[in-house]
Design a protein around this nucleic acid. Sequence first.
DNA 1: GCCAACGTTGGC
DNA 2: GCCAACGTTGGC
Length: 153
Amino acid sequence: MHHWLMKSEPDEFSFQELERKGKEPWTGVRNYQARNFMRSAKVGDLVLFYHSNCDEPGIIGVAKVSKEAFDDPTQFEPKSDYYDAKSTKDNPRWSCIEVSFHQGFKRLVSLPDLRNSAALSDMLILRPGNRLSVTPVTAAEFKAIAGLGGLKK
DNA sequence: GCCAACGTTGGC
DNA sequence: GCCAACGTTGGC
């Protein structure tokens, strides 16, 4: 089992919205590295949900992979922001996964919290200039972050 | 709104 | 295949 971290701008799609809807297809990823990470995700993998580009950036809870990679339908929709004219149904470029709500944290694990934790010093998300919206997280990192956030039960 | 750090594109 | 120009991300 792998662990992941996925970023979302709460103005676009928040963790609260995921809780309300229950599940969501993670479409619109247009970065090859992030795509490849999604392609290696398995059903049941846990996902740290990170709110970016907002007042308080940080990890707000945990989602779960509920469908493995499939063709991202938005790449074929000319009206979509994520339309890719170079992608064909015979040879699609972009994949997405479906994620489901799992559990919220008792408290936000903020970006400063992450930076202050010695156990998290190697996290990809903390590296300068890292803009990947999907990154792998080690089991130890996941455990440390869940400890800081405190899972609701 | 600024800007650093990237990824992508396209001319050559 | 190089690399300059451009676009995007995301913290501050």
